[in-house]
Amino acid sequence: MRAATAKTVVLGLGNILHGDDGAGAQAISRLRADPRVPTDVSLVEGGTLGLELLPHVWDCSRLIVIDAVDVGEPAGTLVRMSGEELNSLPGNSTVHQLGVSDLLVALRMLAERQPEVVLLGVQPLSTDWSCELSPPVAAATDFLVEATLRELQPLAEPNVVDANS
């Protein structure tokens, strides 16, 4: 049931001082200026926080997370993960241990009903110290914004196309 209490949160993650890691934050600032974002959607720029973001997401019915995701693809590649694909993510070798996956588990423990969670990610080129995105990731940010907007359309057609099709 979504009814009156439905709440959608778009959460952009990443460190704006670390090059492509700032893609999530960039996407949020672009979405803030975009009139196509429904007014009841809450846009949150979460930096590199994990559990500390609970106050923003604990009562949402849909959560769209935007982050740099290392999948070993060419820089700028966009990926979408949802449902079981998000279980126990990320692995033990992650730098930021209490990160997005812990947030999702905390949600499972606290929330009355489980939100629908989607992760939209972009493959980074470099996360060295810099306030700028690399050219391929900067270019991909346009698509990241479009992909997010499509997630926000309630009856959108699936925006996922099989890589082979």
């Binding site: 993650l13 990443g14 460190n15 001082l17 670390h18 890691d21 999530g24 930096g47 590199t48 982050d67 740099a68 995701v69 290392d70 999948v71 070993g72 693809e73 590649t77 966009l78 990926v79 979408r80 993960m81 694909e85 993510l89 990320p90 692995g91 070798s93 992650t94 730098v95 930021h96 990160g99 997005v100 992760l119 939209l120 990610g121 980074p124 996360t127 698509f143 479009e146 992909a147 925006n159 996922v160 196309v161 099989d162 890589a163």
Partner: peptide, 18 residues
């Protein structure tokens, strides 16, 4: 100076085309 890249190597994901 935490970096927030999600490590998803070797995991299932769907490429997104726009």
């Amino acid at each position: 100076c935490a970096v927030h890249v999600v490590d998803a190597r070797g995991r299932k994901y769907t490429p997104v085309t726009v």
